[in-house]
């Protein structure tokens, strides 16, 4: 899941300061699950904007709406009527959602959250980074623990000299990913894997080759679409 966190209020208020009618848009997917941009957060932010306007002695109108998903144009189409009534939009979706909304409406769209990382839920209210989207998954040889996302240096053949008692030198709260990998390989009886050197990683699929795109020919083929439509 993509995780996000609400931006500092003052930053959001700064963006919308010039405008009088604002639409706050939530997304019912990842940002709802990580409690950053669902209906509840939309309500709270909208209230905060109204409180701020009261303090500033300015009358601001705030509309609230939450879409099923902001990263699909069809869902974003549903905003048409509301978007027509406002001067600016604050989106609480991840960067993908914000850009989709911005691409479809000719008014300023501001981010209400900082998109953080692809993470997993550890327990209620705690999410941790697990994947950096390197485009060439190596979990198969590292016992299911990702050294790219979970090693501070993303090294391929670890650990480095900074691993102390299973913790990373950057912080005693951060596990050394390579310690985890070793422990896991021992658990699986696959210590031999550890001895094999991993060749230098090709970072092109990770974005080194420019903005990435996935095209599923079977789904995206214009032929199929045409046939369907026909």
């Amino acid at each position: 899941m993509i995780t996000a966190e609400q931006k500092p209020l003052q930053e959001i208020l700064g963006y919308i300061a010039p405008y009088e009618k604002i639409l706050v848009v939530g997304c019912n997917e990842c940002v709802t699950v990580c409690a950053a941009g669902g209906r509840k957060e939309v309500g709270l932010l909208s209230s905060a904007i109204r409180l701020n306007s009261a303090k500033a002695g300015k009358k601001i109108e705030v509309l609230e709406h939450t879409l099923e998903r902001q990263c699909d144009p069809e869902y974003v189409d549903q905003l048409a009527e509301l978007a027509g009534q406002v001067d600016a939009v604050v989106s609480l979706a991840c960067g993908c959602g914000i850009q989709t909304v911005a691409s479809q409406y000719p008014i300023p769209v501001f981010p209400g959250v900082n998109t953080k990382f692809m993470g997993a839920s550890e327990s209620q209210g705690i999410w941790a980074e697990r994947c950096m989207g390197c485009g060439d998954c190596m979990l198969g040889i590292t016992g299911g623990i990702c050294p790219i996302a979970r090693c501070s240096k993303s090294i391929m053949n670890g650990p480095c000299g900074g691993s102390v008692n299973g913790k990373c030198e950057i912080s005693p709260d951060v596990d050394c990913a390579w310690q985890l990998i070793w422990d896991r390989l021992v658990e699986l009886g696959l210590q031999d894997r550890y001895e094999e050197l991993v060749a230098a990683k090709d970072w092109r699929p990770a974005g080194g080759g420019g903005p990435r795109k996935i095209i599923r020919e079977d789904l995206a083929s214009s032929k199929i679409i045409t046939e369907d439509n026909a």
Binding site: N28, E29, T32, V33, A35, G38, S121, S123, Q124
Partner: peptide, 12 residues
Amino acid sequence: VMCAVCLICVRA
């Protein structure tokens, strides 16, 4: 329809 299947209620 509104449920995001986030598990927050399950855990809370």
